[in-house]
């Protein structure tokens, strides 16, 4: 009995630990001191080439603040808007929610690509770094991520955007924010008129159970939910879903198909891309064809 007590005591002490694995889901890099955009030499999501160049005059790097709960100190979120800010009040804007890698510089080629959707700067594109990513303050958590997206919606609203001209586009981890807003529009500053999901998670728990075989609850590892397959059931706006059929990170049959099948809204379109992996679907599909699919959906 004494031996058992000796064994149990340190275990109870250990069990009191609150270490969670959520932070490991975020591949954030906040070591940069400025956005280098075209001069960035680190790895990037795509190489879109000179054909999708964006002029400096149409690139606006700025910050806005969000408060993280009542009484908490606000912290700054860094953002990049491409297009004319003055046209936010009259034109359609895409809020792009990027994936889990690094920061805005990593996804800058995608923002440039979308800035040429339907013609150069036909649509304004806003991309933010979530808390703990790039130049944004705070720590990377699911709640902070949603708060930062809400801050972006607030900024767009303050610049004159209305719900009927807002398109939300999420990639990978960014699909969590889009599904959260689409499923719970009353909790956010704005409601999108259309949503685009590229390579979405089904849920954090699905990811864990696929990898472990055993049906462990997600709470054994993370507080993170990312319940896209649940939240999407409540969406009431049209959906475009794009997923590479060769996605080795979030397999299309284990994640994307569930999100698409669970969608409960009025209209949904699927683009399953043969040969497309997690990051390279636009390239594999061909940038022109990829943009045409996006444009066709937005103009529907």
């Amino acid at each position: 009995m004494k031996t058992l007590i000796y064994l149990l005591l340190p275990l109870l002490v250990f069990t009191a630990c609150r270490k969670r694995l959520d932070s490991f889901l975020f591949g954030n890099d906040n070591s940069i001191t400025e956005y280098l955009l075209d001069n960035y030499t680190g790895r990037t999501t795509l190489d879109v080439g000179a054909a999708y160049h964006v002029e400096d005059s149409m690139t606006h790097v700025f910050q806005f603040d969000i408060s993280n709960g009542a009484g908490a100190q606000p912290f700054m979120i860094s953002a990049i808007y491409t297009g004319e800010i003055s046209r936010i009040a009259t034109d359609t804007v895409i809020l792009y929610c990027h994936g889990t890698a690094d920061h805005n510089d990593f996804y800058w080629p995608r923002q440039k690509l979308y800035s040429h959707l339907g013609g150069t700067h036909r649509y304004g594109v806003l991309m933010i770094d979530y808390p703990g990513f790039g130049l944004s303050d705070g720590s990377p958590t699911e709640e902070n991520m949603y708060q930062s997206v809400n801050g972006a919606l607030k900024w767009l609203k303050a610049n004159g955007l209305t719900n009927n001209r807002l398109v939300m586009f999420g990639f990978s981890l960014g699909t969590a924010s889009v599904c959260q807003v689409a499923g719970n529009p009353n909790d956010f500053e704005m409601q999108p008129s259309k949503i685009i999901l590229e390579a979405p998670f089904a849920s954090a728990e699905k990811m864990i159970q696929d990898a472990s075989v055993l049906g462990f609850p997600a709470s054994y590892f993370v507080s993170l939910k990312v319940d896209n397959a649940i939240e999407i059931k409540k969406a009431t706006v049209p959906l475009l879903w794009i997923h590479g059929k060769a996605d080795t990170f979030l397999a299309i049959d284990k994640h994307g198909e569930y999100v698409f099948a669970n969608y409960g809204g009025p209209s949904k379109t699927a683009v399953r891309v043969p040969g497309g992996d997690h990051e390279d679907t636009p390239f594999v599909m061909g940038y022109d064809a990829y943009l045409a699919a996006l444009l066709g959906f937005i103009l529907q």
Binding site: L21, F24, L25, F26, G27, T100, A101, I208, A211, S212, V213, L214, F216, Y220, F221, V222, F249
Partner: peptide
Amino acid sequence: MKQLFYLITSIFVLGAC
């Protein structure tokens, strides 16, 4: 992305192994 592997690594810290 690399850090995601650490997450799943930890799954087996807790897992059947």
